[in-house]
Simulated scan of single mutants.
Amino acid sequence: MQSVVIAALIALVFFFNQASAKNLVRVGGYEFPPYIELEHGLAKGLTVELIRQLNQLQQEYVFELILTTPIRRHQDYQQGLFDAIFFEDIAWGWGQRDIAIDNSPAFAKDDEVFIALRSNASSQQWFDDLSGKTIAGILGYHYQLTNYETDPDILADTYRMTLVSNHQASVELVLKERTDSAIVTRSFLYQFLHAYPEKAAQLLISERVDQSYQHQLLIHPEHPLAIDTLYHWVQQLLQQEPLSKEFQRYKLELMPAQPSK
């Protein structure tokens, strides 16, 4: 009996040593549907699924999600709270702040478009000139319309922008006629209208695009996991289910894979 207990203890110690030997990759993420959605305090979405798939694909690294916010993510990264961030763009404040971080080639494309009530906006020409119109946006997000300004006071005073915490709130402000328009991602609109098809007749979606952005993977340059390796793994997963199906569902355009450097 004693030998059995000793063998079990040795196996347990070996298990924990193996687990601790794995390199941890803390992936920062903020509410940004369909990439990250928070429901009753739990995160779901494409980033969560990608993390799960990466952990299944290989055994050397363990990926885990660390929640942050759009406005706090740069500071949290610089303070060492996370190592990497997915579905991000180096142009979203990282390069401007001269933050040391490696970025992959783009692997997916999404757009930000405007919405308005059809009862107020009768045609696409309504979106041509948004001066004088109120607009809902997300706190901490960068918009081409506002020259990528993120200061809430400037956005409110100069661009008549109301800032909320998520796209759902932006859409609801339009539906309740509390703002004239809102900027939302095309991928979120597909998700929203799939859940609430009866709202489609009420909303006019602009052909005008505020900005198209190409999602990248970002990771600390001193992390043991090289950005080229991470990019290769993600490209491998994007060719398989369930990620390929999820990308099709949200009409996300996959970018051609780039060769390793």
Rank of each mutant, 00 (worst) to 15 (best):
E112T: 11
Y159V: 07
H167F: 09
V184L: 07
K109A: 14
E112Q: 11
D128E: 15
L193C: 11
A121Q: 05
V164P: 03
H142S: 15
L163R: 00
E112H: 10
T146S: 01
Y143F: 12
S170N: 13
Y196T: 09
S122H: 14
G132R: 02
I135Y: 00
S123T: 13
L139Q: 11
Y196N: 11
T185M: 07
A169Q: 15
P152I: 04
D129A: 14
A195M: 10
Q144D: 09
P152R: 00
D153V: 15
A121T: 12
F188G: 04
W126S: 03
I154G: 01
D153Q: 13
D128N: 14
T185F: 04
L193M: 15
E177I: 01
K133V: 05
T150G: 03
A156S: 09
S181T: 15
F114R: 02
K176G: 07
P152K: 02
E149I: 08
L189D: 14
S165N: 14
L163N: 00
G140A: 04
L130N: 03
Y159N: 03
S181M: 08
V113S: 06
F127W: 06
Y196C: 07
L117V: 02
E177Q: 11
Y159C: 03
I138L: 09
Q144L: 15
D128G: 12
E112C: 09
T134M: 05
Y190G: 05
D153M: 14
A121D: 06
L163E: 00
L193R: 15
E112N: 12
I154H: 02
L163V: 00
T158L: 14
F192Q: 12
A136C: 08
N166K: 05
M161L: 09
D157N: 09
N120G: 06
F188V: 01
F114W: 10
A136M: 03
F192L: 12
Y143D: 03
L155V: 10
Q191N: 12
L163Q: 00
Q124Y: 07
S131R: 09
D157F: 15
R186A: 06
V164M: 01
R118M: 06
V184E: 00
F127Y: 08
F107H: 04
A116N: 06
A156T: 04
A136I: 02
S119R: 15
S165C: 06
L189T: 10
V164H: 03
G140S: 04
D128K: 12
R178V: 04
V164L: 06
S119W: 11
V184R: 00
H167Q: 14
D153L: 15
Q191E: 12
S131K: 09
L155W: 07
K109V: 14
K176S: 08
S131A: 15
Q124V: 05
E177F: 01
R186N: 09
G140L: 01
S187R: 07
V184D: 00
L193E: 15
Q144A: 15
Y143Q: 08
D180T: 03
Q124G: 04
V113P: 09
Y190Q: 14
T134C: 05
S187H: 06
S123H: 13
M161W: 02
D110C: 05
S119I: 07
R186I: 03
A121G: 11
A108S: 13
L117T: 07
E112W: 10
A195Q: 14
L117G: 05
R118Y: 07
L189W: 10
T146Q: 00
G137D: 05
D111S: 12
D180F: 01
I138F: 02
Q168C: 02
L130A: 09
S165Q: 10
I135C: 00
F188C: 02
H167I: 07
L173V: 01
